[in-house]
Nucleic acid binder design. Sequence first.
DNA 1: GCAAACATGATTTTT
DNA 2: TCATGTTTGC
Length: 739
Amino acid sequence: MDITADLNPPQKEAVEYAGGPLLILAGPGSGKTRVITHRIACLVKIYGVSPHRIMAVTFTNKAAREMKERLEKLLHLGAEDLTVGTFHAICARILRQDGKLVGLDNNFVIYDEEDQQSLVKQCLTDLDLDSRQYNPQKIRNAISYAKSLNLTPSDLAARTNSRWDDIVCRIYERYQEQLGQSNAADFDDLLMKVLYLFDHQPEILEKYRNRYLHFLVDEFQDTNIIQYQLIRLLGSRHRNICVVGDPDQSIYSWRFADIRNILSFEKDYPDAKVILLEQNYRSTKNILEAAASIISVNQQRKAKKLWTENHDGTPVTIVRTYSEQDEAQFVVNEILQLSRSNGIKPGDCVVMYRTNAQSRAIEEAFIRYGLKYKLVGGTRFYQRREIKDVLALLRIIQNPFDNISLSRIIKLPGRGIGQRTLSDLTNWARDNHLPLFTTIKIVSEGGGPPFGQKVRTTLEGYYRMLNDLIIQGQHLGVVDLLGMALENSGYRNYIREEDDGDERWENILELRTVAMDFNDLPAGEGLVRFLEQVSLVADADEIESKEDTTTLITLHQAKGLEFPVVFIIGMEEGLLPHRRSIEEGGAELEEERRLCYVGITRAQKHLYLLHTVHRSIFGSSSESIPSRFLDDIPEHLIERKGLPEIDSTYNGHSARYKRRPDEDEGITVTELLSKRLRQQSPSNDLLQISPGDNIRHNKFGKGQVIGIKSVGNDKEVIIAFEDAGVKKLLLSLAPLEKL
DNA sequence: GCAAACATGATTTTT
DNA sequence: TCATGTTTGC
C-alpha cells in the first residue's frame, strides 16, 4: 500500500521528512493523528527503520493504545517492538530496569496526588508545622512545580527568597527522604529520576541514546520543561525528533505544561523543519470561523489561518435559557429533535462544560427523559476510596516499606487500631529513622513504643497477617492474592457493611477483573505490573461510542475528540472564563479562551453555545452574564434561540431580566421558556394511561406503569420495565405504546 | 476506637 | 450542594 496516498502536500511532507528535527504545528481537525501514524509507518516501511528503534510519546495511555491499534490494524505493522507510551509510562519502565542506580528498588511503588498529599501532611507533622497555616495542597503543588523544572531541594533552596519558599524547601527535602525510605516515586519523580540517571550513569544514557533513532512527541504544547529536557537528551545522538502540537490548544499550563517548549525547540534546533497543517477536515466553515474569531483575540499567539473545503453548514446556535434546568431541557429537546429529523443520533452528540458540577442538571434531564448518557471522568475509578484501600493493601505486599499505604490501611476501622496508635507508631518510627512496617515488627517482638498489652497483641496480629500475605505473594497469582488479602485483612467484611457497600464491592470486583489480565504472569511480576498499570492509567472505562448514548464531558477531557453535534453549556462569565482565571487575568484568561476554542473545534456539523440568566452555584443562586467569548463571534454566523436578548441595563448589582413587552404578557420567564420548548416539540396528544397499565417502550421494552405525576401540561410517568428497571419518563416524549 | 455531629471550602486533572 | 476533614461524645 502507498503510505502517502490521500495525504495533502504538507501532511505528505511531514510524513516523509527525514532531515532531522521536525516541528509540526497542527491545527484542530488537520489530520494530525494520521500524520503521526503514517510517519511511523513510513519510517518502518520506506526508510527501513526497525520499530525497535522508534519511540512515540503520547499524552495519555489511551492515545498510546489507540496509536498501537491503528498501526497494527490499518498499516499491518507489528507494533509490539515500538516504544509507545506516555512520558511517565516510559520512564517507569526504564526505572524498573535501571532504577537501582538512583536508589529505587525495582519493586518501587508510584504515588499519586492523594498519596503525595498524605506524605506532605506527614512531613508537616514531622517538622512540627501547622497544616492550617501551610496548606498541604499548595505545598504539594509547589513541590510538583519544582520537579517539573527538574529542581532538587537544594536547587530550590538556592533560589528561595521568602518564608514560604523556605518552608516549601524544608518540606520538599523531608518529602524526598520519606519517598526514599518508602521506596516510592511520585509522578514527577519518574521523570526526574530518569533524567538524573542519564546525567549520572553515562553508560545507561548511551544505551538508550543509541537505541532510539526516531522520536515522535504528540501534544507537544502540553509537555513541561523536564519532559522536553528528557526528549532532548535522549534524542541528542541522532537528532530525529519530531514534535507535534498546537499552541492554541494548550490548556494544561496549570499542570506546568510550558508553551515555551515550542519556542525552545526552534531555538535549540535552528535547522528544524517547521510544517504547518492548516487545512481542517472536521468542521463546517461556520464553526471554523466562529472558532477563529474567538482564538484570534489572544495576544500571545502566532497567527495561523485555518481553512476548510467543507460546507458553510448551519449557523452557530447561541441559546439563552433561564436556569440550568432549562439549559439541560433545551439540550435534551434538541437532541430528540435532531434525532427525529436530521439523521443525527444521540450518540453523535456531546455536552461539554467547564466544571464537573455542571453535569448534574444535564444528567437529571437525561434521566427524566430516559435518554442514555455516558459521563466521562467524574469520580474516577482509581480514586475511589475502596479501590485505593485495596491497592494500598496490595502495595504493602509488593513493598512493605511503603509508609503511606501502610498508614492508610492500618487505621481502617474494625481492626482496633486507631489514629492514636498510628501516631504513636509513626512518631516512634520517625525518631528511630525506621519504616512503619519495621516498627510494627519490632512491636510484635516486644519492643517499640510503650504500648499496653492489648494494643501490642492487636499489632502483633496485624503484623502476622501482613507478613503472611507477603509470603503468599511469592507464589500466588495476583487474583488469588487479592482475594486472600481482602479476606485476611477483614476488608471484605468491613466494606460490605458500609451504607453503599454493595456498590463499593462491585468496584472491587471490577478491579479484580483488571487483575485477571495479570494473573498468568509469574507471582511477583504479576503484582508489580498490575500495580504499575493501575497507578499510571487514569481511565478505567473508555468512551466507547454507542449510537444511543450521548457523551457528557469536561472541556479539558474533550481534547482530541470530535463529534457531529457539540453543546457547550455554561457559556458565562465566571464559568467560562472561570472566575479564578478572571481574577488572575492575563495568561490565565488566554488559556480559558483556548479551552473554549478546543471545545468549539470538536464540532463537525452543529455547534450550540448555551448560557443562562440564573445559575445556582454551591446551592445559592446568582445572576449570570453571558461569556465575553460569545461577543467575539460575528453576528452573521449566529442564530439565537431560547429567551430573547436582555434589553435592559444592569440595575445596581442585580441584572433584571425583561420580557419582550409585545408577547406573553403576564407570565414568568420560566413559563415562557417551557411554553417555547413545548412549541418546538411536536405536540402529540398525551397517551391516556393510568397506574397498572402495561405498556411497551420502543427501547426499554415491556413494563408496567407504577405512577403518574403532572408536570405542567405534561405528565411524568414512572414505569417498571421488565428488563430495564424503573424509569421516570415524560409522557409526551417517551415512545410508549399501550398494550 | 469509633461513629455521629459539625465545619469547611470547592476549576480543570493526561500521569 | 456536597464531599471531605476535624472535633466531640460514648
